[in-house]
Amino acid sequence: TYTFKVDNKDQAKKAAKWAKKLGLSFQIEKHGDTFKITVQ
């Protein structure tokens, strides 16, 4: 499981695209202005 934080929606979208490309499941949680992405 890999967790990282991004500062904006664009970065969150890029991370989601990357995870989908690799066939991984992911969750994006919004914490105020940051997004926490968990990829597994």
Rank of each mutant, 00 (worst) to 15 (best):
G32E: 07
I28Q: 02
Q27P: 00
Q11T: 06
A19V: 05
K20Y: 08
K5L: 15
K36I: 15
T38D: 02
K20F: 07
T34P: 00
Q11C: 15
S25V: 11
T1G: 12
K30T: 07
G23Q: 04
A15M: 12
D10Y: 15
K21H: 10
D7A: 14
D33A: 08
D33N: 11
D10C: 14
V6F: 10
A15P: 01
A19I: 12
F4Y: 05
T1L: 09
L24P: 00
A12I: 07
A16T: 06
F4P: 02
K30I: 08
K14W: 11
A15H: 04
F35Y: 14
K17G: 06
K14V: 09
Q40H: 12
N8T: 14
Q11N: 05
D7F: 14
Q27F: 13
K17R: 13
D33W: 04
H31K: 08
E29P: 00
K9Q: 10
E29S: 08
K30R: 11
K36E: 12
Y2A: 04
Y2F: 12
K20R: 11
D33Y: 05
Q40S: 14
A15S: 03
D10R: 13
H31R: 08
L24T: 01
Q40T: 13
F35T: 02
E29A: 07
D10I: 13
Y2S: 03
G32N: 07
D7H: 13
A19W: 03
H31W: 11
Q40R: 13
K30E: 08
A15Y: 15
D10N: 13
L22I: 06
T1Y: 13
K14Q: 09
T38R: 05
T3H: 09
Q27Y: 12
F4M: 03
V6Q: 01
F35M: 04
K30D: 07
K5Q: 15
K30L: 07
Y2W: 14
L22G: 02
Y2N: 03
K21Q: 09
K21P: 00
W18M: 05
Q11F: 06
Q27I: 13
L24D: 01
W18K: 04
K30H: 06
D33T: 10
K13R: 13
K17L: 10
Q11Y: 06
T34Y: 15
K9P: 09
D33S: 08
I28K: 02
F35I: 06
W18F: 05
Q11R: 06
A15C: 15
N8D: 07
G23Y: 02
T3I: 13
N8H: 05
A16R: 11
A19Y: 11
D10V: 11
Q11A: 13
K5F: 15
I28A: 04
K14M: 10
I37E: 00
V39M: 06
K9W: 15
G23N: 07
G32A: 05
T38Q: 05
I28W: 04
Y2I: 10
K21G: 08
T1I: 13
F35Q: 01
K13S: 08
K20G: 04
D10L: 13
F26V: 14
A16E: 09
Q11M: 11
K30Q: 12
D33Q: 07
A12F: 04
D7R: 13
A16C: 11
Q27G: 05
V39R: 00
A19P: 00
V39C: 05
I37R: 00
K14F: 08
S25I: 12
A16P: 00
Y2G: 02
I28L: 06
Q27C: 14
V39E: 00
K30M: 09
D7G: 12
Q40G: 12
A16N: 03
K5G: 07
G32L: 05
I37T: 00
V39F: 07
E29N: 05
T34W: 14
G32P: 02
V39H: 01
H31V: 14
T3N: 04
L22F: 08
D7I: 09
K9V: 13
Y2V: 09
A12K: 03
F35D: 00
G32Q: 05
A15W: 15
F35G: 01
S25L: 11
T3M: 06
A15I: 15
K17Y: 10
F4A: 02
Q27W: 13
K21I: 08
D7K: 14
Q11H: 08
L24K: 03
S25A: 11
T34K: 14
K13P: 00
K14H: 08
K36W: 15
T34F: 14
S25M: 10
S25T: 11
V6E: 02
Q11V: 07
Q27E: 10
N8Q: 05
A12D: 00
T1W: 14
K9T: 07
F26G: 01
T1A: 10
L24G: 01
K20W: 07
D33E: 10
E29C: 12
K9E: 14
L24H: 05
S25G: 06
H31F: 13
K13I: 12
F35V: 03
T34S: 13
E29Y: 06
F4I: 06
H31M: 14
A16D: 02
F35W: 14
K9I: 15
A15E: 02
W18Q: 03
I28F: 04
G23K: 05
K20T: 11
A15N: 01
V39S: 01
F26T: 04
I28D: 00
F35R: 01
H31Q: 13
N8Y: 03
D7S: 13
T1M: 11
K20N: 06
T34V: 14
F4D: 02
E29Q: 08
A12G: 03
F26E: 00
K36Y: 15
K20C: 13
Y2D: 02
N8R: 05
L24W: 07
W18V: 04
T38V: 08
